[in-house]
Design a protein around this nucleic acid. Structure first.
Length: 547
RNA sequence: GGCCCGUUGGUCAAGCGGCUAAGACACCGCCCUUUCACGGCGGUAACGGGAGUUCGAUUCUCCCACGGGUCACCA
């Protein structure tokens, strides 16, 4: 067989050579040890937690090594493309603080190794396809869907391994005449890789995350160019990651099964194999079983979902990194305010088995992250979220930023900050009583004499002054307690509760209920300072009158 | 079914031949405290099973079980 003739027959218009490509995309000039990674999604416009998990790995690997992190769009399957998908991907990642050094941008490319959309790289792929054909390493296959289906049925019936291999690879060694005949008839073909592998052969492969793994050689003649001339993932991966000079391929472990084929491809093309980092998958519990999260079935794993729920982007990032590197939590505990960039990220600390997403843990991390923010940052975060998801609340926040910030400042900034907020969506409930429109009084059964409650509230109003400091303020509350026969000293009260009608804690409770409408609240003195004398008096009077 | 990966408490996980088997989340209790939150202290709870190697296995080997993944002209 004259393979050069066949190559010319199949790709008459291709005049470029692999050498041209090598010149066009020369090795990168980077410092020793710099890693080049890529995030390579298909443009469905939808990213889930698993995508982010990989993207963070890519980004950290590149940016902790002085390397390059780029975006490549894998749009070889038109069916999966969604209008605006690329833009959505870029914006979503940006919202999590992931910025690309090069690659596809919204209306084009940035960088010297493009195009970065696979749909624009046909000539490049065909150049290498032609080369493979000319070397006898790839061949056209004219099988119809029906024929392939028949092969499959036979294999299933005889319990053989499925696939286009061995005796089933009917076009593998077809005579040139037969090929020309089909070509003349205008029949479509796919290009298949001629595998020289055997499933009898096994070898070890070192994965950066999984360590040494055992693999079996591939014996299937996989499709590398589809009938429309567009490459399959496998072929595009080899060509692109070689020419774009990717040093580390990060992808989830479901790709492990096709790794042998990829190794073959790189070898056949004369490419140096990149390092592979096969990540464990993020799982969810479904009917008591773990399973890989899916784009279609699990909207709650959409990358955008957490923002909608009101988790700051930094939280998702923080959570994912705790999953990604097992020593991150410890580091974070010791470096509470350090930027995440200071953490030494490594594939050595990555889990080899899939982990379940833990909403409780996310909530805890979120409380910690938010508790470390300044009042201004909290205000900005809540406002931005509310503007989209709770416009009424947003208007109130915007109407009086000073008050909102004063509320957020309660118990904030010290060594042990309050941790009330896990999601922006919880803020309204947390502080609603500061707004007259939202203020309501919980119906609470107070097991005290109404006359005493009234007397206590009136007594408090009689001496209350907003200019008192907190110590004076509380002394007055104690005085009220004494005045109505409640204990002002908690120790005395606890020693002998029956000697009193109640304690100063109960008096505070009455005032708290009147002022905030609830039994629990942040520091009451500060709350009253923020509310102002007028509203404090009005609310307490309201309660007196309602009793 | 073939091939591949995995298996330490409810969850995330340290561990890399000898430990009372870390820590975090969740849960429970106590303390602090005018409520809540924070914080402090303590508690419940784990090496899937069986052989083997070894003086000694959570750590090494093999088998089994279970879980997961993958077998497209999708990525």
């Amino acid at each position: 067989m004259d393979y050069n003739y066949l190559a010319q027959l199949l790709f008459p218009d291709i005049t470029t050579t692999p050498e041209d490509m090598e010149q066009r995309f020369p090795p990168r000039q980077l410092p020793e040890g710099a890693k080049v990674t890529r995030f390579a999604p298909s443009p469905t416009g939808f990213l889930h937690l698993g995508n982010l998990y990989g993207a963070f790995t890519d980004e950290r690997l590149a940016h902790t090594s002085g390397g390059v992190f780029f975006l490549r769009i894998e749009d070889t399957d038109a069916k999966r493309a969604v209008p605006g998908g690329v833009e959505l991907i870029i914006k979503t990642l940006a919202s999590f603080g992931l910025e690309f050094d090069e690659g596809a941008v919204i209306d084009g490319d940035k960088g010297a190794y493009g195009p970065y959309r696979q749909s624009e790289r046909a000539e490049i792929y065909h150049t290498y396809a032609k080369k493979l054909v000319s070397e006898g390493k790839a061949y056209p296959c004219f099988c119809t869907e029906e024929e392939l289906e028949a092969i499959r049925a036979k294999q299933e019936a005889e319990k053989l391994n499925l696939g286009y291999y061995g005796e089933f690879a009917i076009w593998r060694d077809a005579p040139i005449e037969k090929i020309e005949e089909k070509l003349k008839a205008g029949e479509q073909f796919v290009l298949r890789f001629r595998s020289e592998g055997s499933i009898e052969n096994h070898f070890k492969f070192n994965d950066q995350i999984k360590g040494d793994i055992n693999v079996t050689e591939n014996d299937i003649d996989h499709v590398i160019l589809k009938s429309d001339g567009i490459p399959t993932y496998h072929f595009a991966h080899a060509v692109d990651d070689h020419l774009m000079r990717t040093t580390h391929v990060v992808r989830d472990e479901s790709w492990l099964s096709t790794l042998p084929f990829h190794i073959q491809l790189f070898k056949a093309l004369g490419f140096k194999l990149p390092k592979y980092c096969h990540t464990a998958q993020v799982m969810k519990l479904d009917n008591g079983n773990k399973r890989k999260i899916s784009k279609r079935k699990d909207p709650e794993f959409a990358a955008t979902f957490y923002r909608e729920q009101g988790y700051p982007a930094a939280v998702t990032r923080e959570y994912l990194i705790t999953l990604l590197n097992s020593n991150f939590e410890e580091w974070r505990l010791a470096n509470q305010t350090a930027p995440i960039e200071d953490f030494k990220f490594t594939t050595k600390k990555m889990s080899v088995s899939g982990s379940l997403f833990d909403m409780d843990k996310l909530g805890d991390i979120s409380k910690n992250v938010i508790s470390r923010m300044s009042a201004d940052e909290v205000y900005d975060g809540v406002l931005e979220w509310a503007q989209q998801y709770d416009t009424d609340f947003a208007a109130k926040l915007a109407d009086n930023p000073d008050m909102a910030k004063a509320v957020f400042a309660i118990g904030r900034g010290g060594k042990k900050p309050r941790k009330d907020i896990a999601r922006w969506g919880e803020v309204k409930a947390y502080m609603s009583f500061f707004y007259d429109d939202y203020f309501t009084v919980d119906s609470v059964e107070l097991n005290f004499d109404k006359a005493d409650i009234k007397a206590a509230l009136s007594g408090f109003l009689a001496t209350y002054s907003p200019t008192d400091d907190s110590a004076v303020w509380f002394d007055k509350v104690k005085a009220v307690a004494d005045g109505v026969g409640f204990a002002s000293d908690m120790k005395a009260y606890k020693a002998n509760p029956s000697a009193f009608k109640g304690s100063v804690a109960d008096i505070s409770g009455f005032i708290r209920l009147a002022v905030t409408g609830r039994q629990n609240s942040p520091d009451l003195y500060t709350v009253m300072q923020i509310l102002g004398e007028e509203r404090v008096r009005a609310r307490i009077n309201n309660m007196i009158n309602s009793l």
